[in-house]
Amino acid sequence: MVEKLKYLLTHALINVVRAGWGSLASIASIAVSFVIIGIFVLVIQHFNALIAEWQEQFQVSVFLDDQITPLQVNMLKRRIENEAAVKAFTFTSKEEALTSFRRELKGQESLLEGLGDNPLPASFQLKIREEYQSSEALKGLSAFLSRLEGVEDIQYGQEWVERMTRAERLIRLLGAIIGSVLTLGAAMIVSNTIRLAVYARAQEIEIMRLVGATKAYIRAPFLVEGMLQGSLGAALALGVLFAAYRFVAPTFNVVSPLFSIGASRGFLESSMMAGLVGGGAAIGALGSSLAVNRFLKM
């Protein structure tokens, strides 16, 4: 078994080298596809991390009426406590709001003197469970809260939530579309290269078939060859991406804040890298079986 595998691998390598420019074209086209796919994955990964961080800090502020009674505050507290979307909450009284505002204005307290009465409202700060942070769920929650007695206003950066969610969906969709088009294209190119390899060895295949080789036996070396081309291409793409990431991305920091936040995080997660190389192998296998199956039918 091990000997067979070794035989298959060494021969696949020899054939990849023997096919020369053909293999190189396959490997390069897979690499190009995977560089682009990799960029999408990288952007999506950073975007997700950004959103996760942002969701951590995300809170809904419920501002209260100045005329609210302590009894009403207690009732509101209980309503909020029982709300499934709420992970935790804090209450800030008018006085506490003013104190913290003063702290923020350090040195410029004189600004407050003219105000006389405390103008700041009391409020609840709600931390929201992640699964309730979609814009639909937040709209529902805010509608519910604003109907409660003693609530004056609700604020949670509605627009931001919507924009972030929409942008993430768009990037995912674009990535999926472009990714699958490129994947198919790469598979076709591999298929073409392998087809040439198959034709070059048509007589050998014919003889093997006639002396009793199974289809699987005939297919195996081409499959390994395709997988080798695919994974080499993907690995090459990762190398190029990594180099770009390390040496080129930092110069963009000034231009794009998204990039600078991204660059401070790591490169692709190792499971994702393994996945991409595996994906390359899968594409190679797909292209190769397309080529060989068409031939074996003849």
């Binding site: 007589q203 050998e204 014919e206 003889i207 006639l210 002396v211 009793g212 080789a213 199974t214």
Partner: peptide
Amino acid sequence: PRMVPQLRRTLGIVFQDFKLL
């Protein structure tokens, strides 16, 4: 069809055109 390879392994064939690589 998947039994055909087994059959062929019990046969020896000398082809008219030899079919040598």
